[in-house]
């Protein structure tokens, strides 16, 4: 965020988050009341990663993979059973309140705002909650109001806000104390395209200009593509991937698609190295199995082609394959 004052130097030289061999198990009771059996589930099992100051990290995983459990441990709402965890140099579960003063948390599906009162009142409360000097508070509030365009609804009761407006309000509430780490749990869930774009642009700017470290969980891979240089994928309590987005694509290569616009509608194109998966009028989608150049040459030889494009596999497909433990991927993982 643009600021007239120099921002405070990052207090931690070391990593913002340092997790080593992090694990957490739960005991669950199953079955009918009289024949109840107890079973131990490893929700998180030996997760290790470091997040450096200024990084934006996407934390992905299917429901039940251990995402929320990890998040809860990071913010001190849950004690790890095993391993070592430091967030901003603190042990979260032990120093939850002290840590809370230095992290901002937004749960996409929950709100910290006062439902029946104007948004302004909830935001004013954070000043006392985090003991922010009045001048700093006023300055940050003005900046955030400007960046997130809160002006038109600052005086509106929260219950009357749209979901997108409420989310911008929640983000503001989480950032008014200028946290070093922002933890977002599905920040764009349920939002329309425009609201998502606003929030993503804001987060990118926050990270670039303020250097705020951001850790976000999401099922919306648009968030990841737009924001995260680094992605961690958790599945069955273990880290299945930790690296950049390009690496994730390479690691779980999906088929590329050749979109062919023929001069006129016709039967499915049949060429070696490609398979027609969809037809719509003169347009056909071919899943590429062989060399794209050869396939394109072959298609052009057989049919009259108006236009051609090659589509990369979407990140959705890549992650879905990763979750499913794709056979090809398992082979690629064999060395580790």
């Amino acid at each position: 965020m643009p600021s007239s004052e120099p921002s405070a130097p990052a207090p931690a030289e070391g990593p913002v988050i340092d997790a080593r061999g992090l694990g957490r198990s739960f005991t669950v009771s199953e079955g009918p009341l009289l024949r109840r059996r107890r079973r131990t589930v490893d929700a998180v099992d030996g997760v290790a990663f470091r997040v450096r100051p200024g990084e934006t990290v996407g934390y992905l995983g299917p429901n039940g993979a251990g995402k929320s459990t990890t998040m809860k441990m990071l913010i001190g709402l849950l004690t790890p059973d095993r391993g070592r965890l430091r967030v901003l140099g603190m042990e979260p579960a032990r120093h939850r309140t002290r840590l809370a003063a230095r992290i901002g948390i937004v749960f996409g599906q929950r709100t910290t705002l006062w439902w029946d009162l104007p948004l302004r009142d909830s935001l004013a409360l954070t000043r006392h909650l985090y003991r922010v000097p009045p001048r700093d508070h006023a300055r940050r509030l003005a900046e955030l109001t400007d960046l997130l365009e809160l002006g038109p609804f600052l005086h509106t009761p929260v219950r009357q806000l749209s979901l997108g407006q409420r989310m911008r309000g929640d983000l503001t509430a989480a950032l008014l104390h200028d946290p070093d780490l922002l933890v977002l749990d599905e920040p764009t869930i349920g939002l329309d395209v425009v609201s998502k774009a606003t929030i993503r642009a804001f987060l990118a700017r926050l990270n670039a200009e303020r250097g705020t470290t951001i850790l976000l969980t999401t099922h919306d891979l648009g968030d990841v593509e737009r924001l995260c240089r680094r992605v961690m994928v958790i599945d069955h309590g273990r880290l299945a991937y930790d690296g950049d987005l390009a690496g994730l694509r390479d690691r779980a290569p999906g088929p590329r698609t050749l979109v062919v616009d023929l001069a006129e509608p016709g039967p499915p194109v049949e060429v070696p190295g490609a398979r027609c998966v969809r037809r719509q009028g003169p347009r056909q989608w071919l899943e590429l199995e062989g060399n794209p150049a050869e396939v394109i040459a072959e298609v052009a030889r057989n049919r009259q082609v108006a236009d051609l494009t090659v589509q990369e596999p979407g990140i959705e497909g890549v992650v879905a394959r990763l979750y499913q433990g794709d056979a090809a991927l398992a082979a690629a993982d064999g060395g580790e």
């Binding site: 001190g76 709402l77 002290r98 809370a100 749960f107 929950r110 709100t111 910290t112 909650l129």
Partner: peptide, 12 residues
């Protein structure tokens, strides 16, 4: 509803 998690994260 579990909203209590949000409350517990407040330094209060």
């Amino acid at each position: 509803t579990g909203e209590i998690a949000v409350d517990l994260m407040r330094p209060a």
